[in-house]
Design a protein around this nucleic acid. Structure first.
Lengths: 350, 350
DNA sequence: GCTACTCTCTGAATCGATACAGACTGAATC
DNA sequence: GATTCAGTCTGTATCGATTCAGAGAGTAGC
């Protein structure tokens, strides 16, 4: 009674073998109902809490949990409404499947982060926006399946659920272009992680490290290029983090000069909402678009590109938990939709 | 190369014992640097992903994860902004401690839910609003520590972080009382789970099963009792779920009669916001208070009782991960604050 | 030269279960 | 009466590591 009882203790108490007690728990058909009842009763008496989950996992080779990896700090993930809705979708699918979710915090030090992924007791990973190329490698080495949501050139045969980032972004920019906007600012989180907040020069969109941001910026640029506005003519705004505050801070110095942008294309809704916050203090008539269509976007009248957040999460988890028979079905592309609200208006005539 | 290599495989490849390879990973000081380098190199060659986390956990008796239990569906937790912020706090503390978070979905069937708690591979539990009395029992039987956030009579010696629910609720009600409100409706989620949505008769507040809701309703009633408004004079409104939509739905039939309430005291911000949504369609001047002070409350001008959500989560996790030496320190009561905004006004003279 | 130490490394025990082949029993079949 | 079979239960191998006492080698001190 001193330390926790084990299967063996129950077995000796009842006078049967360990296997039989094990069967009482996970194969009721393998023993008589009477004996099973006696075993369960003895277990109750001994305060035996049931088979040790870790030992079971080791023996069975299955854990019953999937890991979720966020590149940024785990606690930041909860401040990002899109991430939260994605997680809700993952949770829903996991719930239906009777699987737990292991949220693994990744230390900023790459070596430690690697170890964290190696040490996670899971049956697979759901990789949310991992830019770090080592993540797939480490997971593959462990022989575990994983699903990514960010487009990656080297993702190869992996399971993937996402959207056509570039085309979706272009839809937002096309909308602004059709409203007459030509002087446009492109706002993204960590376009260059090393660069300061605010206006930024970049020779080429390929220099953006984060794949999702890169694709969205490229999509924005596509639309503008179609009407003769080149990359060099665009204002790039670097934000430090994906939050309202970061969005507001990024445009603080973005509207100087005699030819300020008439519109801002943001890579996410939270950044766009931050821009709206900041613009509320000014008189300027600036159009703003976001990306994702988070719940607050509607209330703020933000024009944005909607992507199905929960569904993305649900599908990601499903791809992991019930892998499709055909490998081709492992790549899912979701539909996006431009949602036009009041934050975009025709270019004001000055 | 067929199946995943084990520690043993690396050991035989290098020509050393298993123990030495193990030491190479977790006790670098136990072997010479040269040999260690050789072992690590061999591991790389063999594609050995490092010690198996499950086996390690079994041997060490430590998992490196704490479980988070939500009574309602796990996916619902992500739709509740307060729960999300609480989780953010838990995540922050866990992150700092290098511990993972296991989100365990609880099946609605109690027997299966029990099994889910028994099978979770964790070192402790953070129990968010578990009304179910079996939860502490099952966890205790497993010999694991846990922290609760909901007040429970039988919580006994457990670690706990919470607020004085009753006093906090009373502050909101006192405020309304001071504005002259006497005909008041009390709105809560699942005041009686079995009762229909909308107005409800209840002989006594003790009949409310959910402890947090019970305490808040009691606090509301305290303030009104102090000015001579008895329990029987209050309108109780039952909501089905803790969401804006549920809040709006609950008051649909709540304002009939010739003496409709002049104010609504809601047990949560999301319910209160739902009430505001519903009231927006009507002309009535009804004051509304919420509880929690979620992010959207400020924008909506909702008067509410603020409780520190992230801090609650942080402390809950800290209580689990770094248990205080003194047992008395295991019970933490956080401060709350009435935040008066525009949703509460003096009673209109009719 | 001998004792005492420090470094490295090994062997065996152990963590707590599950799986599978087979042993035994009693009943049904021919 | 021998055979077959289903129903129960047991023994043993195994999952993949960690731990700890101790073996052996080299070195320092006296």
């Amino acid at each position: 009674m001193k330390s926790k009882p084990t299967l063996q203790d129950v077995a000796t108490a009842v006078g049967v073998s360990r296997s039989t007690v094990s069967n009482a728990y996970c194969r009721p058909d393998q023993l008589s109902a009477g004996l099973r009842a006696r075993i369960l009763e003895a277990a109750r008496q001994l305060d035996y809490p049931g088979p040790n989950p870790t030992a079971r996992s080791l023996r069975r080779g299955v854990v019953g949990a999937i890991g979720v990896l966020f590149t940024s700090q785990l606690s930041y993930a909860f401040t990002d409404p899109f991430a939260v809705r994605f997680l809700a979708g993952v949770a829903e699918a996991a719930e239906r499947h009777g699987t737990s979710l292991l949220l693994v915090p990744l230390p900023t030090d790459p070596t430690q982060a690697r170890v964290a992924v190696e040490n996670a007791a899971v049956d697979g990973f759901c990789v949310y926006c991992a830019d770090d190329s080592w993540v797939p490698d480490v997971i593959r080495r462990r022989g575990l399946p994983f699903v990514t949501t960010a487009p990656r050139a080297d993702a190869g045969a992996d399971r993937y659920v996402g959207i056509d980032e570039r085309a979706a972004a272009r839809a937002a920019a096309d909308h602004l272009v059709s409203l007459g906007h030509r002087r446009v600012a492109l706002l993204g989180d960590s376009i260059r992680p090393d660069a300061p907040v605010g206006p930024l020069r970049l020779s080429c969109v390929d220099d953006v490290p984060h794949p999702t941001t890169r694709q969205r910026l490229a999509g924005f640029a596509d639309a503008l290029a179609a009407v003769g506005v080149g990359w060099a003519d665009l204002t790039l705004l670097n934000a430090a983090g994906n939050s309202r505050a970061a969005g507001a801070a990024a445009i603080a110095d973005g509207f100087v000069g005699d030819q300020p942008p008439t519109a801002v294309l943001a890579c996410s809704d939270v950044l766009a909402l931050g821009v709206l916050d900041a613009l509320a203090d000014r008189a300027a008539d600036v159009s703003v678009t976001g990306f994702d269509d988070v719940p607050d976007a509607a209330a703020a009248g933000l024009t944005t590109v909607r992507q199905p957040a929960e569904e993305k999460g649900r599908i990601a988890a499903a791809l992991l938990l019930d892998p499709p028979a055909e490998p081709a079905a492992g790549h899912v592309l979701l539909r996006t939709e431009l949602v036009v609200r009041t934050s975009t208006r025709p270019v004001p005539r000055s």
